[in-house]
């Protein structure tokens, strides 16, 4: 694999959950790439399918959910075709995940060292414990975790430290992708800021790709290189952080950015409040899922789902405002007339 081809290619990925109300379309025909060594922020209101997408990337969707369509190519291989053995190998060696709650994501009866040694040994049966310990020590040094922490149990560590251990568990086998699902959300602000810095350092040092899932768009501005914005199971916009923040194209992204409070005291402004509520994904709106709440909605928006359109180099948007359709002219003309 050369470095210009993306690490992960997600193609028309759909995930549905069977519920009493019918199938919930939690992720709907989402396509985007994760490049080598980038931090890609994935943002959107809670319930829009971010975690579902993250789990799908590790094939961790459990019943009643399932990946109902699409492809996930990792280094060109479709992970949806992996058998159990290959899948186990993929999880841990190629991709790994950090979860929201650091208090519960480590085994309470194992020390940090036992976690790390186990992670190595389940994937490399031939590695002897002393060798594993050697590697772990080097890794901890690079992560800035003190050696004395190896003997600690999870309950003896702070939240930030636990998340670093989780990161270490992701890196100990040189995985190329780390999915961090709200990994900093439960930490207090100062610890959160530190961990964000650290994630960037880790990316620089280890060259891993990080998919940073968060509902906090301000955090993405600080941490990510590119941003993917999701709304109600759909990808709505994708681009460089600077582009998205300076010139958001999708009305949803515009609304999202306008509703972020600023820290400038003098600039205290009325925050934008998006009208309406996110839809129930068991009965998503027709066409563009955002149209019932969209200030710029046209008649075509409720009838056809907009395709992905590269509005500027590297800046992609799913929105009828930026693309043509035979029915679009017709209807807008009629409305105008």
């Amino acid at each position: 694999m050369n470095d210009t081809s993306p690490l992960v290619q997600i193609r028309d990925l759909s995930v549905t959950y069977k519920t009493r109300l019918g199938d919930t379309s939690a992720v709907d025909k989402v396509s985007f790439d994760i490049r080598h060594g980038e931090i890609l922020g994935l943002v959107g209101e809670s319930g829009c399918g971010k975690s579902t997408l993250g789990k799908a990337l590790l094939r961790m969707i459990m019943p009643p959910g399932r990946i109902s369509a699409g492809q996930i190519l990792f280094n060109g291989e479709d992970i949806l075709t992996f058998d159990d053995k290959r899948l186990r190998d993929y999880r841990g060696r190629q991709a790994s995940m950090i979860f929201q709650d650091p208090m519960t994501s480590l085994n309470p009866v194992q020390t940090v060292e036992q976690h790390l040694v186990e992670a190595i040994q389940v994937h490399e049966a031939q590695t002897q414990t002393p060798d594993a310990t050697g590697r772990i020590k080097t890794l901890l040094e690079r992560l800035g975790i003190m050696q004395s922490r190896l003997a600690s149990y999870p309950h003896q560590l702070s939240g930030g430290m636990r998340q670093r251990v989780m990161i270490g568990l992701g890196l100990v086998l040189n995985a190329g992708l780390i999915i961090a699902d709200e990994a900093t959300t439960s930490l207090d602000v100062i610890v959160e800021a530190k961990l964000v810095d650290q994630l960037r350092e880790i990316r620089d040092e280890f060259g891993v790709s990080i998919l940073a899932i968060t509902h906090n768009i301000a955090l993405v501005a600080e941490m990510a290189d590119r941003v993917a914005v999701m709304y109600a199971g759909n990808l709505v916009e994708l681009g460089e952080v600077s582009r998205i923040f300076d010139r958001p194209l999708h009305p949803y992204t515009q609304g999202l950015l306008a509703s972020v409070p600023t820290t400038e005291i003098n600039e205290r402004k009325e925050l934008y409040k998006m009208p309406g509520e996110p839809p129930n994904l068991a009965r998503p709106p027709s066409g563009c899922r955002f149209h019932p709440r969209c200030p710029a909605a046209m008649s075509i928006c409720s009838r056809h789902r907009p395709g992905l359109n590269e509005a500027a180099p590297g800046h992609w948007v799913h929105c009828w405002l930026y693309q043509d359709h035979p029915e679009k002219e017709e209807k807008t003309l009629k409305v105008a007339a």
Binding site: R88, G92, R93, S96, F99, T104, N107, V109, H123
Partner: peptide, 24 residues
């Protein structure tokens, strides 16, 4: 969560059940 996290690291199911979960 720690079982899910272990699964995400590729720890075999048997080990998750009989070692991690059972010990707890």
């Amino acid at each position: 969560d720690f079982i899910t996290a272990g699964r995400a690291r590729g720890i075999p199911e048997r080990r998750l059940v009989y070692k991690h979960a059972l010990r707890n």
